[in-house]
Every structure is written in structure tokens, then in C-alpha cells.
Design a protein around this nucleic acid. Structure first.
Length: 670
RNA sequence: GCUCACGUAGCUCAGUCGGCAGAGCACUUCCUUGGUAAGGAAGAGGUCACCGGUUCAAUUCCGGUCGUGAGCUCCA
């Protein structure tokens, strides 16, 4: 009697089959329709779906992926990639194929061509050929082959990149060839059964890409595309792409006159007066938490002797990203991070265990040389400012300190309406305490420190009721870390904040504090940033809000428009009244028609417009027009001011959330 | 850094298969003084990114430099 396997389905039910049953057969056993629609399976919650013909030989959970399902999207995309490669080889004989996976929002296929890369002009032709082939409803046939067979076939075809791929397949893996019509490709699958599913696709761009992502390898030409089950879904996707283009912060930055770039300062923004308002508004907002959190702000040198970076290790590991200046035969380095300076700051005085935690916040400007190809708008720049802080703590204080920082971080993201997810990265193989030459005792002590740190991070997360993803072994060599990603209005994820424990730097700088036993102990450093870089955050926020910033951050909160020039005097009076209440207001004094000035205010996304005519002047009132809401009608000036003030209130931290739980016994300092 | 594309007025973009550089918006001046998304007229504004080459002639063709953008293993 053959062996049995228990297959658990998503609804929790368990079915028993003979070992070796395929996913397809399982689906068929559940229902005729399901059997027909099944195109792949996800076993034991894996990241990628596998082919329906895969035999199941041990107990497993199984999710059957069907046509037209969300989980099946990578499948249809992957098959579309094959279709594209097929079309390309038909149109451009001599082109060699390499790989063509499904990716987050579509797929790509990399080709090698002696004649040089494809151009955007080639895309419509290829697309047309793809549609032509797809309409013939050609089948996708899977066959299991031996290594020798497949090598022989692809050698004959002269596909040298494919041969390399075949050689890279592990010895025990089943090798499969998928043939779409008459076009075979070595592929792991899964795929849709025939080309009738390939209707809603579009080729989006071309780009260069290195073979296997290594810049020493030949440059391939890559074509990107996307595919969906239906044309409606494709259209929706393309519409979101269009919206993203409209919201591009580089475009908004120009249109709203917030910042610009000049060739003399590549990848380094100039913030205009309006842009600087946003920047400073964010700094003030973050700063408002520093009181309740008992954090002190410091200012540290921009340029220091390279010795500092030799001590910190940046000279050995980060030199290529730094700017240097040779002055008086001394080499100075521009700070790429605040931490080395903060180490000096801590080391400058003698500290008692009673003084800890010591929290240094710093809005200093940082300069990092980024390779020319990687800079982009405000999101990747060479000069920026972090809402940075370094917390010097005793080991027993790590948990509480992280808890407080997490509370701030959640608070801050909530203010901007950004959904968040957390990743916990734990000790990597190569890490402090695992270097050769340590005694067993030292090793054990390090192991304990890492264990303790990770446990405290977990506890702090639990305390703040935060779910997290675990990235085992992905921490820094000097300590475990938390990374925070947020989701913007278009559903895109961005990494913003980070909280990293550091056992290394304090040692390099030989920092210590006097412990309770009058001995010396080494503090642990916590690096943390919440917005990350202000520049990048401004970029993300602009795209998230489409330029309609919350009123408290808007560079100009209100604009006053008069019906005619005679009313300018009243306009100035109103401007004065608003200014006196701290409203950032602008009076449009141009001799233009009302409609023109309203339009201009709308295009500039000014949140509140106050329209003044003779009627309003008589009654000492204003007519209020609110962005996105329209005309609110005439109201007394006081009421209008109150309306603006209420909406423009700068969010304030709630002190109660940031009360420290442990208090030092006998600590008498504040 | 590498591949490809792009760089024309403050902005958005035409244009020249090599022969004195164009529009709309914005700006300036004048007229107009008006009720919730563009009133009218006139004017000013450019070393066509920069450097070099080819040519009688280069914004245009070629080479280089700078800048910007997309991409550079989410693995057959």
C-alpha cells in the first residue's frame, strides 16, 4: 500500500491522498471547476506559487491558485514574459534569451543582442506581435526533461545564457521546459494553460540590466511590462501609474515653488522660502516630542579631522561615500552621519549610571557621496538632514527606551495618516562577539547581550501592540534593529524610520559610565530616526498628499483676494488680523479679476482663500473658500480666523504617552 | 559607476533632413475694477547645457564634459 499524505486546505479541512498526488489532482478532487481553473499552488505558505503538476509527497498545507485570482497574477505575468520573449525572437532573430520573471507590478525579460539595446520605439511592434500570437490560443505545454536533453537542445539553439542558467540549477531539482506554441524555454513555471489568458498586457519601458545583476557581466537589454487578468484591471493599474506621475514630488516641487536643483550642486536641493517652511515645520513638529521624551538637542561639527572617522570605522568602511577637504596639511572629513560626533560628545564628560539614558538629538546636515546613477529628486540626495538621535543607555534600559521611541514613532506616522509595518532584524552570522580569538567566556557574554537585546526589542514591540516581520540574521553586525515602512495614499511602501542597537561604537570610542559598584561599564547606543531624512520625507509626503499638505504644514495657509483694488486697504487689515493670530497669509494685490486670482490660488493649492468685497467690508466679514470644500459663504472675521486656527493646530504630543516607567532609586536630578 | 533616453525663454513644450530661433503660460507697461478656476493690448526675455571637431555656415551632424530621468538578479 502506498503512503498517504494529509493536505490541509485554507478553510482548515484536511484531506488524505496517496503520496505523489499532484496539486492539479487535489484541485480536481475538490471540484470540477476548481480543477479546471487551478493554475498553481502555494505550499506551506511559500512566497511563490509552484506548478500544478508538482507531486505532493509529504503532509502540507495547500492553497490552490486559480485563474483570475490575485495570487495568480504572477503566473499570468510570467507567462506574458514568455510570450514577449517569443515575440521578440520572432521579430529580432539572433536575440538571445536570459531570464524573465514576474515582479511586483508586472514582469520583465532580459535579452542579449549584438546589435545593441531595444528602444522604446520597438515596444509597439513587439506588443502587436504578442497580441497576434496570443490570439491564436496556443497552448503552454510543460515537460520534464533531463539535464543532458535540455543542454543538448539549448546548445543547438545557441542560447548560451540559458545554458549558464541550466548549469546553475541544483543537481536534484526537476528541470522543466515550458513550450508556448512552438517556443520552448527552460522554466520553473507555473504558467497559465494557454495564451487565451494573455489579453490585458502592456510593455512599459526598456532599460539596461547586467547579466545576473553584476556590473562586471555583459549588459543586457531589458523590457518591462505588466499584465492582468482583465483589461479593466490593466486600465486601473495604468491610471494609478498616471496618478503617480501627476503626484511626482519633483513636479510638485517645481509647480508649488518648494525646491529646485542646480547643476552646480548635483543631487543637492535648494529649498525656497516655501519649501523651507515645510522643512522647518517638520523639524519643529519632531522637536515638540523632545521635551516629553527628555531628549536634548545638540549641534556638532560639520567638518572634523579624519581621525574621528578612523576611530568610528567610517574611514575604513564608508570612505567612498564621504567628502574630504585638505586644509593645513590635515585631512578633514564632512560628516556623513551624526554618530561619531555624538560619541565624542558623550566621551567629553564623565557619566554616572544615574545620568543614563542620555539622549542626543541632532538635526545636523549630513553629506554623503552617492554614485551619480542612484540619486533621484528628494528621495536620494547627497546632502540631507535626519531627525536623528542617539540614546546612550544601560543594558537594562534598552527595553523601556525602545518602548518610548516606538510610542513616538507610532504617534508621528499617525499624524500623517501613514499605515506602518515593522521588521525586526536579528543577529547576523558575522557579528560582534563572533570574531575569532575570543575566549569562551567573552563569547558567552556577547551571546547573552544579543539575546537580551533581541528579547527587549520584542518586548517593546509587544508593549506597543505592534506586529512585526522577522528577518533572521539581517541585523547590523553591531546590533539588532527595527525598520519601519509606511504605506502612502497610492499603496506604495517606503522605508522611513529605523531603531538600531549598537554595541560596537561605544567600544571603539572607549565610552564608559561609572556603575553602581564604582566600576566602569560600557553604554549601549541606540541610533534612531523616525522621518528618516527630512528631504526624502518631504518627497514622500508631497506624493502622499498630492501637494495638499495638512494646514499646519502648508507654507501659505491662507490667501486674501479682493474683488477690486479699492478693497486692498481692507485686505491689508484682514491680513494683519490673520498674521496677528499666527496664520501664514498672503494678500494677492494684482489687478486681476476674481476668477483669475481664485484659479491661481487653487493651482497653488492654497488651503484657505478669503474673498473680500464691499459687502464684507461693510460687515467686517470675509467670504471663505476652503480647498476641496468650496465656498463656505460669508462669515464674521473672528469666526473665519477661528476656523483657520482650529484646522491649523500643530499636532502636539500627549505627554501621558511618554512617561517613563522605571525611576531610578534615589535619583534626585530632574 | 554602467546602459539607454533627454537638456531650446522663469515654466510646459514646438522647431530646424545644416542657412538670422517659435508658441502658450509666467513677467513688465497700459487699458479694464470685476463676486468664486484664465478680461484685453503692447513689450521685454534665448551663447538652443558646456567644451571641442567636421563644414563656407552648427542649436541641428560627430566626440567629450556636466546635469536630469529610467533601469542595473523580488533569480531557470
Amino acid at each position: 500500500m502506498s503512503q498517504q499524505v494529509n493536505i490541509t486546505l485554507p478553510d482548515g479541512s484536511v484531506r488524505t491522498y496517496d503520496s505523489g498526488i499532484t496539486i492539479k489532482q487535489v484541485a480536481e478532487s475538490i471540484g470540477k471547476k476548481l480543477g479546471k481553473d487551478a493554475i498553481a499552488g502555494i505550499v506551506d505558505g511559500a512566497d511563490t506559487a509552484i506548478d500544478v503538476h508538482t507531486p505532493l509527497t509529504k503532509d502540507a498545507s495547500l492553497k490552490i491558485v486559480t485563474v483570475k485570482s490575485e495570487a495568480g497574477l504572477p503566473v499570468v505575468r510570467h507567462t506574458t514574459a514568455h510570450l514577449m520573449a517569443m515575440a521578440v525572437q520572432k521579430l529580432f532573430p539572433g536575440t538571445q534569451v536570459t531570464i524573465g520573471p514576474a515582479i511586483d507590478n508586472g514582469f520583465y525579460y532580459d535579452f542579449y543582442r549584438e546589435q545593441g539595446p531595444f528602444t522604446p520605439d520597438d515596444l509597439p511592434k513587439i506588443e502587436e506581435e504578442m497580441h497576434r500570437i496570443a490570439k491564436q490560443n496556443v497552448a503552454m505545454v510543460r515537460e520534464v526533461v533531463t539535464r543532458d536533453q535540455v543542454k543538448e537542445r539549448f546548445t543547438k539553439m545557441g542560447e548560451r545564457f540559458k545554458l549558464e542558467i541550466i548549469d546553475a540549477i541544483p543537481a536534484n531539482d526537476t528541470i522543466t521546459v515550458y513550450t508556448l506554441g512552438d517556443w520552448p524555454d527552460v522554466c520553473r513555471g507555473p504558467h497559465v494553460p494557454d495564451s487565451s489568458w494573455l489579453k490585458a498586457f502592456k510593455l512599459t519601458s526598456v532599460a539596461g540590466a547586467y547579466w545576473r545583476g553584476d556590473e562586471r557581466n555583459p549588459m543586457l537589454t531589458r523590457i518591462y511590462g505588466t499584465a492582468f487578468w482583465t483589461e479593466e484591471e490593466l486600465a486601473k493599474h495604468l491610471e494609478v501609474q498616471e496618478e503617480a506621475k501627476r503626484r511626482d514630488h519633483r513636479k510638485l516641487g517645481k509647480e508649488l515653488d518648494l525646491f529646485f536643483f542646480h547643476p552646480y550642486a548635483p543631487a543637492t536641493p535648494f529649498f525656497t522660502e516655501k519649501g523651507a517652511r515645510i522643512y522647518n515645520g517638520l523639524v519643529d513638529f519632531i522637536r515638540s516630542y523632545y521635551g516629553p521624551l527628555d531628549m536634548g538637542e545638540v549641534i556638532t561639527p560639520q567638518l572634523t579631522d579624519s581621525e574621528l572617522f578612523k576611530t568610528s570605522g567610517h574611514y575604513a568602511n564608508y570612505k567612498d561615500n564621504m567628502y574630504f577637504a585638505q586644509i593645513d596639511e590635515r585631512e578633514f572629513g564632512m560628516k556623513p552621519m551624526n554618530c561619531p560626533g555624538h560619541m565624542l560628545m558623550f566621551g567629553h564628560a564623565k557619566h554616572s549610571y544615574r545620568d543614563l539614558p542620555i539622549r542626543m538629538a541632532d538635526f545636523g546636515r549630513l553629506h554623503r557621496y552617492e554614485r551619480s546613477g542612484v540619486t533621484a529628486g528628494l528621495t536620494r540626495v547627497r546632502s540631507f538632514c535626519q531627525d536623528d538621535a542617539h540614546l546612550f543607555v544601560r543594558e537594562d534600559q534598552i527595553g523601556e527606551e525602545i518602548r518610548l521611541q516606538l510610542a513616538m514613532l507610532q504617534d508621528v506616522y499617525a499624524v500623517f495618516g501613514l499605515e506602518m509595518k515593522v521588521q525586526l532584524s536579528t543577529r547576523p552570522e558575522k557579528s560582534l562577539g563572533r570574531e575569532p580569538g575570543l575566549t569562551a567566556e567573552e563569547r558567552a557574554s556577547w551571546d547573552k547581550a544579543w539575546e537580551n537585546a533581541e528579547a527587549m526589542l520584542r518586548a517593546a514591540l509587544a508593549d506597543n501592540k505592534l506586529e512585526f516581520e522577522l528577518n533572521v540574521g539581517d541585523g547590523a553586525f553591531y546590533g539588532p534593529k527595527l525598520d519601519f515602512q509606511v504605506k502612502d495614499a497610492l499603496g506604495r511602501w517606503f522605508q522611513l524610520g529605523t531603531i538600531q542597537l549598537d554595541y560596537g561604537l561605544p567600544r571603539r570610542f572607549q565610552l564608559s559610565y561609572t556603575n553602581e559598584q564604582s566600576g566602569e561599564s560600557t553604554p549601549v547606543v541606540i541610533h534612531r530616526a523616525i522621518l528618516g531624512s527630512l528631504e526624502r520625507f518631504i518627497g514622500i509626503l508631497l506624493e502622499h498628499t498630492a501637494g495638499d499638505l495638512p494646514l499646519w504644514l502648508a507654507p501659505v495657509q491662507a490667501r486674501i483676494i479682493t474683488i477690486n483694488d479699492e478693497l486692498l486697504a481692507y485686505g491689508r487689515e484682514i491680513r494683519q488680523a490673520l498674521e496677528d493670530h499666527g496664520v501664514r497669509v498672503h494678500l494677492d494685490e494684482r489687478s486681476e479679476k476674481l476668477g483669475f486670482k481664485i484659479r491661481d490660488a487653487e493651482l497653488n493649492k492654497v488651503p484657505v482663500v478669503m474673498v473680500l468685497g464691499a459687502k464684507e467690508r461693510e460687515a467686517r466679514s470675509v467670504s471663505v473658500r476652503w480647498r476641496k470644500k468650496g465656498d463656505l459663504g460669508v462669515m464674521p472675521l473672528d469666526k473665519a480666523i477661528q476656523l483657520v486656527l482650529d484646522a491649523a493646530t500643530v499636532p502636539k504630543p500627549d505627554r501621558a504617552k511618554f512617561v517613563r516607567r522605571e525611576h531610578l532609586v534615589g535619583a534626585s536630578h530632574s
